[in-house]
Amino acid sequence: MTGLVILAAGQSSRLGQPKQNLLYKGKTLLQHALVAATGSGCQPIVLVLGAHTAAIEPGIEGHAIQVIHNADWPEGMASSIRAGIIQLQQNPEVDSALMMLCDQPFANAQLLTSLLNKRQETGKGIIACTYNGTAGVPVLFDRQYFTELLSLKGHEGAKKLLARYADDTTLVDFAHGGVDIDTMEDYEGLVG
């Protein structure tokens, strides 16, 4: 069983407001991520919140997800990855974790399902998306990598594992993976 972690604890400091609540095609960015996650067939779905929790939580009602609050969110993304993995490890049936961000509006259920399918086809332990000449999220990790994910610190994401275990990594094309929302210019480019 593949669990899914939505990383949505950041402060959105460059944007100046919670990016999770920005509207795109009638839904917030976080709601788009939740729709993709629930449509993927992954279970359980863990949403990691931190900064701006009170402003974000009202928009997630009605979704069958586990919400956890990462009190260590100021440390950076690594703390949210750890929080999500710790939550998934509580379920012994979870043999892999799919991680996604809340600010990639084109990460849909079809893309997430393609990562799951690629794992079945290849037997690889890491399935990452590729875009703009790099590999990144959404990304799926086999349970054998959970210990290393738990050792991440600060602002580092899991990208270094992709390089370290390149022989156990395969890629899925994500044409619009480079579209993420960090600044108001990014958002205006998305909705304009």
Rank of each mutant, 00 (worst) to 15 (best):
Q90W: 00
A166W: 11
Q120Y: 01
G177N: 09
S151M: 09
L101T: 03
K160G: 05
I85W: 02
F146D: 04
T147H: 10
D72V: 05
P92T: 14
S151E: 15
E156W: 06
R82D: 04
E75P: 00
S96E: 12
L152W: 07
R119Y: 03
A166P: 09
L116T: 07
A107H: 03
L115Q: 04
H155S: 15
N108T: 09
C129K: 06
K153F: 03
T130N: 11
F174M: 02
Q104N: 09
L101A: 05
T113Y: 00
T113W: 00
N117Y: 12
A163Q: 14
Y131L: 11
G125C: 12
K153M: 06
F174E: 01
G133R: 14
Q144L: 13
L115G: 04
A128Q: 07
S151C: 06
I81Q: 02
D72R: 12
C102S: 15
A97W: 01
V172F: 02
H155Q: 15
N91M: 00
A109K: 13
S80P: 14
N70A: 08
E93H: 11
A175R: 04
V179S: 06
S80A: 15
L152K: 07
Q89E: 15
E75F: 00
G133N: 15
Q104A: 08
A158G: 01
R164P: 00
I85Q: 01
I126C: 12
D103S: 12
E121Y: 06
L101N: 06
R143I: 09
L88I: 05
G133E: 14
L152E: 07
A175L: 07
Q90E: 09
Y165L: 08
N91L: 00
